[in-house]
């Protein structure tokens, strides 16, 4: 009996020591990575300590003067450009919407050949590579290229968002299709339907709630993305923000950022509500 206890205890100590060694190895690796990164990123603790207050000071300067007794007037002064900004924000949302719908449509078309369960393997690999490319290149890189090809303005932004959205959504849509019940496709095919008809009447009705829900999620992301496209001249509120930062109009910076935040929050709420309704309707249908 005592022998077993000693063996177990020894074994336990051994295991603990091994775990400690492994843990130390990871810590050492992590420390080395941090040091190398700090060297490459030109950062050390002194620089960080010096830079953080400066960043704090900058942010402090953007905070507008708002007093209780003259709140209305102060607010009006802070939001002096509200009319222009509101119009540009609407543009931003419109860019995001147009890009999402165009990209989502392209994604839907490409998602059927990308679904492993329904398409031949060559079609799957071709369409997946296309989607992968479109999703890995950042929206802003597309925007830079399109601004050059299509000229400055929101059209380049719409295209950039559409292309990136196609890549991101196409993969998700394909995964939704793969979860669909294949029997309804077989039924359509058995009744003499073509492959496309099988997809349209067999798969799409099953995956539509998922497709719409992912599309709405993407719209939320795209509103955020559209708000920065202006930095490279591709339209939207980002252009005003860029000007404000470059000309050191501190209160304008905070005013525009607050407006962007409000817009993003409103769109998020709206999309969340729509998504719940779509998914709720789906739950009802299943029951």
């Amino acid at each position: 009996m005592s022998l077993t206890v000693t063996t177990v205890a020894a074994r336990w100590r051994q295991e603990t020591a091994a775990r400690r060694r492994r843990g130390l190895g990871w810590v050492a690796l992590f420390a080395a990575a941090t040091l190398v990164a700090a060297k490459l990123g030109e950062v050390d603790l002194a620089r960080l300590m010096e830079g953080l207050p400066r960043a704090g000071d900058y942010i402090h300067r953007t905070i507008p003067v708002l007093r209780w007794d003259s709140l209305g007037a102060d607010l009006a002064e802070w939001m002096w450009g509200f009319d222009i900004w509101a119009e540009m924000l609407l543009d931003t949302v419109l860019i995001a919407y147009t890009g999402t719908v165009l990209g989502g449509t392209a994604a839907l078309l490409l998602s059927f050949p990308a679904a492993v369960t329904f398409a031949p393997s060559w079609a799957v690999s071709v369409s997946r590579r296309v989607l992968e490319f479109a999703r890995t290149v950042p929206t802003l890189v597309f925007a830079l290229i399109f601004v050059y090809a299509f000229g400055l303005g929101p059209f380049a932004g719409v295209l950039a968002i559409a292309l990136h959205t196609m890549g991101a959504l196409g993969k998700l849509f394909a995964e939704v299709h793969e979860n669909a019940d294949p029997r309804s496709v077989e039924a359509v095919r058995a009744a003499g339907g073509s492959w496309a008809e099988g997809m349209r009447f067999g798969v799409l009705p099953q995956s539509l709630p998922g497709v719409l829900s992912f599309g709405l999620l993407r719209l939320e992301i795209n509103v955020r993305e559209a708000s920065v496209l202006g930095l490279v001249g591709a339209g939207g509120i980002g252009e005003e923000l860029y000007l404000a930062v470059r000309q050191f109009e501190y209160p304008d910076i905070s005013a525009i950022i607050v407006l962007i935040l409000l817009t993003v929050a409103v769109i998020d709420q709206l999309c969340a509500r729509l998504r719940h309704r779509i998914l709720g309707a789906e739950a009802l249908r299943v029951a």
Partner: peptide, 10 residues
């Protein structure tokens, strides 16, 4: 809510 690119600009 604010993209990292905006923070980068700032």
């Amino acid at each position: 809510g604010i993209d990292s690119l905006v923070w980068a600009l700032i």
